[in-house]
Design a binder for these strands. Structure first.
Lengths: 151, 151
DNA sequence: GCGGAATGATTCAACATCAAACCATCAACG
DNA sequence: CGTTGATGGTTTGATGTTGAATCATTCCGC
């Protein structure tokens, strides 16, 4: 995303803000990535385990919503977690639902790597003061929580 | 990324800020996506055309840096753009470099869709005031411009 | 109850992405 | 010059991701 675009000041301002937003998210996430790689997980797998640890068992649909991934993809992510013994599927009372549970090995793995992950995030964000971090959160939440519109 | 994590206030603050940042970027980008889909482009293809339009011809390495994508991937993106007649490769004087040029069809396509894209971004960002947009940009740039560290 | 709509999960084909290995070209140095 | 190292690009193999089609199950109106 170049910055050579010429348009109204309002458009340039919005564009600059958007580009900076996306770059910041990608940049920080890229710096977090090696740590997850080293645990032998993909970002989606890590996200799924993290959601299961902190939210408890979820059905795949819910997992997809949390991770912003398609249903087909969740099937594969859970397949891989199950194959490695990190999670297990339990068919729900409503037999359409598959409740995904964290297996003991998955819980151990996540407990082992999650603290370091949080520390890394803290270090990444430490370039901002506490007040700035809060401000960033407020601004981002306004953008993130908007309703989807006409397209 | 759930928010049920219990840790020190500083850790929770950093985590909340980071999660909000990533969600905002993904959320806004997802709302922009259908517009790009409708033009029959992938996000990377759109990004490449946009870079070429506003920065002029670039070699693939530069393109990769702009788009934060691997070299191998750029080869495929440019392959696909070239196959559709939207871009063309020109071997440079230093024959290692491939200068990627925007083809007339690519220029027409981008000129047709880019203004609407910018308008959509302006609408997305309009939930923030001008001052807030500038503040967001400043905060995000601090995060984005940090040096990569030990890992 | 029954037949169809709705919902969750799975499969499948197409494509994106990456890292590593590889090839081609250039630059530097003896 | 000729070798060696650096640099840009491509290929390859593995995996992730998506959207559409499909299957199984449940829900709902009649």
């Amino acid at each position: 995303m170049g910055t050579r675009y010429r348009g109204s000041p309002g458009a340039v301002r919005a564009l600059n803000a958007y580009v900076a937003l996306v770059r910041a998210a990608e940049s920080v996430t890229a710096r977090l990535q090696p740590r997850i790689d080293r645990a032998g997980l993909t970002v989606s797998q890590f996200g799924a385990l993290e959601a299961l640890l902190h939210l408890g068992p979820l059905c795949q649909k819910e997992l997809g919503t949390k991770l912003l991934k398609s249903g087909g993809n969740i099937t594969m992510v859970v397949d891989n977690l199950e194959r490695r013994g990190l999670a297990r599927r339990v068919r729900g009372e409503d037999r359409r639902f598959m409740a995904v549970h964290l297996a003991p090995a998955g819980r151990r793995l996540l407990r082992r790597i999650f603290p370091g992950h949080v520390e890394a995030i803290v270090r990444e964000m430490a370039i901002l003061s506490a007040v700035e971090q809060k401000k960033l959160r407020v601004l981002c939440r306004m953008l993130g929580l908007q309703e989807r519109r006409d397209a």
